[in-house]
């Protein structure tokens, strides 16, 4: 009888251990997953070209082309190449700090992340996207089989959106859709990631990002990526004095 009791205890302990180990293996490290999503979206340091298209309900559209550079988690700069009315404008983001340089004004001015330098549905923080893991904490992750749903909460009040819900492809660990929400769960906009493309150099990511918003009924904005490539930059490139000279990086890149 005593022997049976011992066997029973050993079995129970073994079962408990097995269950605990299995549960641990299945728990998803949300923070690590979000960092993986960030890295799959962009290399740590890179340059790219973006075309932003604002589409009105009647189908008319306005296009902007930007040269964008990024370094690390939170340094981004962008230069408007076209149209002519915007040419030479540049924007810089260092963490939650953002500036806009207008050639005629001749000096950078601070802007806020909720403004939009191009109008339309994309705001400044969408255009000057830093790593999601830099701005948001992962509150929870859901595994739905073929995708993860990440529930993100802003780290600081200066973030554009209080909450994000991100649907990510499980195999590629790339976002498919993001809902941007207020603190009270009101939908601000939905961002769709489309057309996963091989840009070379191991960069495989969505080439098109679309957004719509209940606040802009009938309007859409689209961002198309081209020429994404890994490139190293000195930190000083991400400074106010360099904002008027971002074009020189394109020249050097072409040399």
């Amino acid at each position: 009888m005593k022997e049976n009791k011992k066997i029973l205890i050993v079995i129970l302990v073994a079962l408990s251990l097995a269950a605990w180990t299995s549960a641990s293996a299945q728990a998803i490290d949300g923070a690590k997953l979000l960092m993986e999503v960030d890295r799959n979206l962009n290399p740590d340091s890179y340059e790219s070209y973006k075309k932003l298209i604002n589409i009105e309900p009647d189908g008319s559209k306005k296009e902007f082309v930007l040269f964008t550079i990024k370094k690390g988690k939170d340094k981004v700069a962008a230069l408007f190449i076209s149209p002519a009315s915007e040419k030479g404008r540049s924007t810089l983001r260092l963490g939650e700090n953002m500036w806009l340089y207008l050639p005629n004004v001749g000096k950078p001015i601070r802007i806020t992340s909720l403004q939009s330098v191009v109008g339309g549905v994309f705001n400044n923080s969408d255009i000057l996207r830093v790593d999601y893991s830099e701005e948001y904490n992962v509150e929870s992750v859901e595994d739905t089989g073929d995708e993860y749903i990440l529930y993100l909460k802003a780290k600081a009040k200066t973030a554009s959106y209080d909450k994000l819900t991100m649907w990510a492809d499980k195999a590629r660990k790339l976002p498919k859709k993001i809902k941007c929400l207020t603190e009270k769960d009101m939908l601000i906009k939905t961002i769709y990631f489309k057309d996963v493309k091989d840009f070379g150099g191991g960069i495989i990511r969505p080439a098109v990002i679309e957004t719509d918003s209940p606040l802009y009924q009938g309007f859409r904005s689209v961002m198309i990526f081209a020429g994404i490539k890994t490139r190293q930059f000195e930190d000083e490139v991400f400074s106010l004095t360099f904002m008027s000279e971002l074009d020189s990086l394109r020249a050097r890149g072409a040399d």
Binding site: Y49, K51, I53, G59, S60, K61, K62, V65, F67, I81, S82, A84, S85, K87, G88, V208, V222, I224, F225, A226, G227, D247, R250, A251, A254
Partner: peptide, 24 residues
């Protein structure tokens, strides 16, 4: 022509020249 339906982005659109001439 601002009503074209397709979105295209060719790298030739961003070719950089040493000279620039713009204004209003």
């Amino acid at each position: 022509s601002c009503f074209s339906a397709e979105f295209t982005f060719d790298m030739s659109e961003v070719e950089k020249k040493p000279y620039s001439f713009s204004g209003y």
